[in-house]
C-alpha cells in the first residue's frame, strides 16, 4: 500500500532582491526587484506503508521544503502529492490527525512556561484522543523516552526537548511521521537514544517515516532506503548499499562529506 505519493513536484518562489542602504530601502518600497528561486524541480517518489526512508542532501537542497509540502504547510507550484490518499495542503482535520511533523530545530512550540504534562493534555484535547488511549500511550512513551512530566518546557535541555517533542507528536499515534533533523545539536548519547527510540517505535507501530538528517549514522541505522536530492532535483532513490557505487563522482563526494561531518 502506498502512503506517500509524489509526482513531478515543483516549487519555486519569488524572493525580493534588495541592496543595502537607506536609498535602496526607500526605493524598494516603490518598486521591488525579484528573482525566482527553484526550490524543487520534477521530484517524484512513492513511499509504502511501514517504510522508513532517509531523505538526504546538502543544505538548501529542498529537504525541508519537501517536508513542509508533504505535511501541508506549503503549497507547491506544480505537481501532485497524496499522503494517506489526501492532498496535504487542504489541511483537513482528519488528515492532520494522522500525520506528525517534528523539527529538531523547534521540537516544542507553545508557551515555554507550561509543564510537559500540561502540553500533552492540550494535545489530547486538540487531537481528540480518547482518555484510555491517552493513558496507555503516555505510559509507553514515558518509559521509552524517560519523560519528566512535571518539568517546565523552558527548563529542558536540548535532548529533553527533542524527546518531549517526539512525545507530543506520538501521543496521538500518527501513521506518518516526518522528522526533520531529529538529532540536530544533540551529543552522541542523546542522538543515539533518539535513534533507538525511533527504531523501536517503527517496529512496534508500523508507522511510515520520512527522515532528514545531516548525520549519516541516523540514516544508515534507521533507513534501508535513501532518497538524495541536490539543488531541488532527485539524484538517487534506492538502497543505501548501492548508493556510492551508482553515484556520479560529485554525489559520492557529497556523501563522503556527510560522513566526515558525522565524525
Amino acid at each position: 500500500m502506498t502512503v506517500v505519493e509524489v509526482d513531478e513536484l515543483a516549487m519555486s518562489y519569488r524572493a525580493p532582491v534588495r541592496n543595502g542602504g537607506l536609498r535602496a530601502a526607500l526605493g524598494s518600497l516603490v518598486r521591488r526587484e525579484y528573482k525566482t528561486v527553484q526550490a524543487l524541480d520534477q521530484v517524484s517518489f512513492t513511499i509504502g506503508k511501514g517504510e522508513v526512508v532517509g531523505f538526504i542532501g546538502p543544505n538548501g537542497a529542498g529537504k525541508t521544503t519537501t517536508m513542509k509540502i508533504l505535511s501541508g504547510i506549503l503549497h507547491p507550484t506544480a505537481g501532485r502529492v497524496a499522503v494517506l490518499g489526501d492532498t496535504p495542503w487542504q489541511r483537513r482535520a482528519p488528515f492532520l490527525k494522522r500525520i506528525a511533523f517534528v523539527r529538531g530545530s523547534q521540537p516544542v512550540g507553545g508557551s515555554q512556561e507550561l509543564t510537559v504534562m500540561d502540553s500533552l493534555e492540550y494535545q489530547r484535547l486538540l487531537y481528540d484522543v480518547a482518555r484510555p488511549d491517552f493513558r496507555r500511550t503516555l505510559d509507553e512513551l514515558q518509559q521509552l523516552l524517560d519523560l519528566q512530566l512535571d518539568r517546565q518546557l523552558r527548563a529542558l535541555s536540548l535532548g529533553e526537548r527533542m524527546r518531549v517533542g517526539l512525545a507530543m507528536a506520538l501521543i496521538y499515534r500518527p501513521e506518518v511521521l516526518f522528522l526533520d533533523e531529529p538529532s540536530i545539536g544533540l551529543d552522541v548519547t542523546a542522538a543515539a537514544q533518539i535513534r533507538r527510540f525511533i527504531a523501536d517505535h517503527v517496529r512496534t507501530t508500523g508507522a511510515t517515516v520520512l527522515l532528514t538528517s545531516h548525520y549519516v549514522a541516523d540514516v544508515t541505522s534507521l533507513c534501508e532506503r535513501l532518497i538524495l536530492i541536490d539543488q531541488g532535483k532527485l539524484a538517487y532513490d534506492g538502497p543505501f548499499a548501492e548508493l556510492s557505487a551508482r553515484l556520479s563522482p560529485y554525489a559520492a563526494d557529497l556523501l563522503e562529506s556527510l560522513r566526515e561531518e558525522d565524525r
Partner: peptide, 23 residues
Amino acid sequence: RNGKLDAYLLQPAPSLFLASLSL
C-alpha cells in the same frame, strides 16, 4: 519567524482560532 504559525497549520483546529485566541 519563530515557527508558531507552522505549528498551528499542522494542528487539526481552525488556524485563525489557534493563532488569535489560543494563548
